[in-house]
Design a protein around this nucleic acid. Structure first.
Length: 220
DNA sequence: ACTCGGATTCTCT
DNA sequence: GAGAATCCGAGTA
């Protein structure tokens, strides 16, 4: 397990700030209760804002307040919100902001770092499958790491004993792109998707206009 | 209780 | 580029 767990304070900020800072950090997951760790660098994320904002974010699951499904979002920061979509996939988010505020960051793509053979098996791909086939897309990365709502929703990502963690290995991200979010019907123009420019594992998108963002602005 | 549709992916054309 | 697969959460058609 390279690097250090992120601090809780890292996530005690609005998701539009946390999301770009998360680029380059590492998501690590213990493979099915085994000692093996699967890990990938976060290369694409989206921010979803809590309903306390004005205007509130109509594309967010938390838009209409707490429900049985989204309750993790209203809990403490740094926890995993995993939900099922289209009856066949899972998507993973990280809760942000203080308890009671439901901002979160959706993980849309990783660059595989460890356990690629297991990821390929999880994805039903050949052992030599390209990195981008393993973890490029929110549903794909969950499948590659074996993330499910039953096993991972609500887990604390910032505990040393946790089977699912977010870490900083000291790697410094390059330029980021900012675009509208993918696959939503509301607030389609809000510039809340962030991705590492030129990274081959960033998911392919229809045609969101991509805007260069200054790397300095991202780091703080 | 019932229905609509989704923060997707894959396959086939 | 289009359509299917396939489940369940959330609003109420």
């Amino acid at each position: 397990m390279p690097g250090q767990l992120l601090e809780r304070a890292f996530f005690l900020a609005p998701p539009e700030q946390v999301a770009p800072r998360l680029l380059g950090k590492v998501l690590a997951c213990r493979a099915g209760g085994s000692a093996q760790w699967l890990a990938g660098r976060i290369v694409e994320v989206e921010a979803y804002l809590g309903p306390h904002n004005s205007p509130p974010d109509p594309a967010a699951h938390a838009y209409r307040g707490p429900t049985a499904r989204n309750r993790v979002l209203f809990g403490p920061a740094g926890h995993a919100y995993v939900y099922s979509i289209y009856g066949r996939h899972f998507c993973m988010n990280i809760s942000c902001e203080a308890e009671g505020r439901a901002g979160c960051v959706l993980l849309r793509a990783l660059e595989p770092m460890a356990g690629m053979e297991q990821m390929a098996r999880n994805r039903n791909l050949a052992a030599g499958a390209a990195a981008a086939q393993l973890t490029s897309g929110p549903g794909r990365l969950c499948q590659a790491l074996g993330l499910t709502r039953e096993a991972h929703n609500g887990l604390d990502l910032l505990e040393a004993a946790s089977p699912l963690q977010v870490r900083d290995d000291g790697w410094t991200a390059g330029d980021a792109l900012v675009t509208p979010r993918i696959g939503i019907k509301k607030a389609v123009d809000w510039p809340l998707r962030f991705a590492l420019a030129g990274n081959p594992c960033v998911s392919k998108t229809k045609n969101p206009r991509e805007t260069a963002l200054d790397a300095k602005r991202r780091s703080r």
